[in-house]
Design a protein around this nucleic acid. Structure first.
Length: 497
RNA sequence: CGGGCUGUGGCGCAGCUUGGUAGCGCGCUUGUCUGGGGGACAAGAGGUCGCGGGUUCAAAUCCCGCCAGCCCGACCA
């Protein structure tokens, strides 16, 4: 969908979002974009609402979305243009939004179950959507690109972008005075671990320099911990940040990556991961190439502006709710629901009058399901070496009638009769009357993945028994012509829905 | 954006190093046989070799530029 720039400027996302928003100009040089989601448009439509009596409402559509991905990949899983079923809820207050959100949560779980998908709801970052609180629905798959953290006891699940875990305490030595020492050629955490007089990774402070809104920000992590960039973005309430270049860093502190630290650094915002809180006896770069500092005390030596949870949770770390070892799994994101609150209604002035005649910004929610991704996830979860095995609920047809020798009038007539009877019985059936060899037609039916196949050939017509094959199991049943409709319906009910 | 690679009948590819007649498989057309797990034989049709420029007597092949796509990484609600 082509959108004018104005609504996107009004929400602020025109400037907030980077190259992922596909911008273009028309012949009059007017700014346009290809919509990556439709909050702006639905909020504009919501300007029509004027009274609390019109709320709550839920609107939905199935629409094309476009995101200018740096690198589309993985077949249909990550593409520039895709189809999304998105809905938007409108409520008078937070309580109403909570209800709409909970309803969607339940409905989505039922949708995914009917699609034959085992969807795991997880806490997630709202990213560029804004608002507070969001839940992603994930399906475990090696083809996925998202990592989630789950507790095997079922009391915790989160995208790694928001996940936390209990941190094992570290015993620090008694405080000592800061000491600068030469570390010729040492440029990495590992290098400093192996250096004589160096320090274990969990006794080091890793200093990362980022550019946020064209300002330099120093990010401090424990040496053995990895930064989750999304946590940094969320913690700083920004949508974009990038690592500073070596040149930018040198211009700022006079040292190169590998010898960086935050001790005595002034003029930049310094944010530190919670794992460093109260730590002492640490080792870090001295902002002087080939020199490090030891006996660094976080409280005494570093002016931290913000303490944030920034680190990546690893498998095996204790759950924050029950202490059980967490598991990290690769998944496909098949749905994402957001509590937008007044993130969009306020800048657009989408308000209604409440029962006291007072103007209130509408509380909105936004709920998306990626259609192609769901199909891909279904196929990933339901296939074998021969092809797809569609669950009955989403199969293009529930039954295929494979007619052998369709030019034989008796055989074709029998096939048509079964076809008509099944249709009358409400079964979604397709007739393969192509003049192909049996092997070709069987193989095609299995590749496409119809849940059931009925074979009608001269042999069966003569004997009065037809072959009913269940795709998922390969089970073959000989069913009399008179029973075929009933047995077929029984098998459909018994199949995965 | 960094690294690697590909673009040749409808589809999948070979040919390019070493310039000279565009070839193979599948599919398609016609015919005969065949007919319950991807048939056999025979005869055919079908190609601006991604686009533009250059070198050359001669370019699918060598050189330059561009476009599109794929893989790894970065990035990605």
């Amino acid at each position: 969908m082509l959108h004018p720039a104005e609504p996107w400027q009004q929400s602020g996302r025109w400037d907030l979002i980077g190259d992922e928003l596909f911008r273009l100009k028309d012949r009059k040089e007017a700014d346009l974009c290809l919509a990556m989601t439709h909050e702006e448009i639905f909020t504009t439509l919501a300007l029509e609402l004027s009274s609390y009596k019109q709320l709550p409402q839920v609107w939905y559509q199935i629409q094309t979305k476009l995101r200018d991905e740096p690198r589309p990949k993985s077949g249909v899983l990550r593409v520039r243009e895709f189809t999304m079923k998105d809905s938007y809820s409108f409520d008078l207050d937070q309580a109403g939004l909570d209800v709409a959100f909970a309803n969607h949560y339940t409905a989505y779980q039922r949708i995914f179950a009917r699609l034959g998908l085992s969807a795991v709801p997880v806490e997630a970052s709202s990213g560029m959507m804004g608002g507070a609180g969001s839940v992603e629905f994930m399906v475990r798959s090696d083809a996925g690109e998202d990592w989630i953290v789950v507790c095997p006891t079922g009391d915790y699940s989160s995208n790694v972008e928001t996940a936390s875990a209990v941190l094992a305490p570290v015993e620090d030595p008694t405080p000592a005075s800061l000491e600068k020492f030469a570390t010729p050629g040492v440029r990495t955490i590992k290098g400093l671990e192996e250096f004589d007089g160096g320090a274990a990774a969990n006794r080091q402070i890793k200093s990362l320099f980022y550019v946020v809104d064209s300002d330099l920000v120093v990010v401090l992590m424990r040496g053995d911990h990895s930064l989750v960039e999304q946590k940094l973005l969320d913690g700083l309430s920004v949508v974009e940040a990038r690592p500073a270049t070596a040149d930018e860093i040198f211009a700022a502190v006079g040292a190169h990556p590998g010898s960086l630290g935050a001790v005595g650094v002034e003029g930049f915002r310094i944010v530190a991961d919670l794992a460093l809180k109260n730590r002492g006896g640490m080792t870090t770069g001295a902002n002087d190439d080939d020199f490090h500092l030891r006996n660094v005390d976080m409280d005494r030596d570093i002016r931290v502006d913000d303490w944030l949870d920034l680190r990546e949770v690893l498998g095996g770390e204790p759950c924050i709710n029950c202490g059980a070892p967490l598991e990290v799994e690769k998944t496909i994101e098949i749905g994402h629901i957001f509590k937008l609150g007044t993130r969009y209604s306020e800048p657009f002035g989408a308000t209604v009058l409440d029962e006291n005649g007072k103007s209130q910004s509408i509380f909105m929610g936004s709920y998306g399901i990626g259609v192609e991704r769901n199909m891909a996830a279904i196929v990933e979860a339901n296939h074998d070496s021969k092809g797809i095995i569609w669950p009955v609920s989403v199969a293009p047809y529930q039954v295929v009638i494979t007619v052998l020798r369709p030019e034989d009038a008796d055989t074709f007539g029998a096939a048509i009769r079964v076809y008509d009877e099944l249709r009358l019985a409400g079964v979604d059936v397709i007739l393969d009357d192509r003049n192909e060899r049996p092997g070709v037609k069987f193989a095609d039916a299995e590749l496409v993945g119809f849940p059931l196949r009925i074979t009608v050939g001269p042999r069966g017509v003569e004997s009065g028994f037809l072959e009913l094959v269940t795709r998922a199991t390969g089970e073959i049943e000989e069913v009399s012509v008179g029973d075929i409709v009933g047995v077929t319906r029984d098998r459909l009910v018994g199949s995965p829905q």
